[in-house]
């Protein structure tokens, strides 16, 4: 899967999880860019992404992810 394809799918998931259609994520997006992106929503987000791409994040990936780009890296590698 191409990186932009992954990013597009991620964008849908973000909009769904945060219930906000104005969100547009880029590889540089971090949790401080989205108001509701706290540790609780992070878990929801992770679970939804796992579901959508049929992958499992490792524990250290879940806690270590710095931005959306790193999420795309992992998906690109695993999916």
């Amino acid at each position: 899967m191409e990186r932009n394809e992954i990013l597009e799918k991620l964008n849908e998931i973000f909009r769904d999880v945060f219930d906000d259609d104005s969100i547009t994520v880029t590889e540089e997006t971090t949790s401080s860019d989205i108001e509701d992106w706290d540790s609780l929503t992070h878990i929801t987000l992770i679970s939804e992404v796992e579901d959508e791409f049929d992958i499992k994040f490792a524990m250290k990936e879940v806690v270590g992810m710095k931005n959306v780009g790193e999420m795309v890296d992992i998906i690109e590698r695993e999916a």
Partner: peptide, 16 residues
């Protein structure tokens, strides 16, 4: 359950 969710966040149930 998702073991990493319990380890990271003390959540005993998966989102499913």
């Amino acid at each position: 359950s998702d073991p990493k969710l319990y380890a990271i966040a003390k959540m005993p149930f998966s989102l499913e």
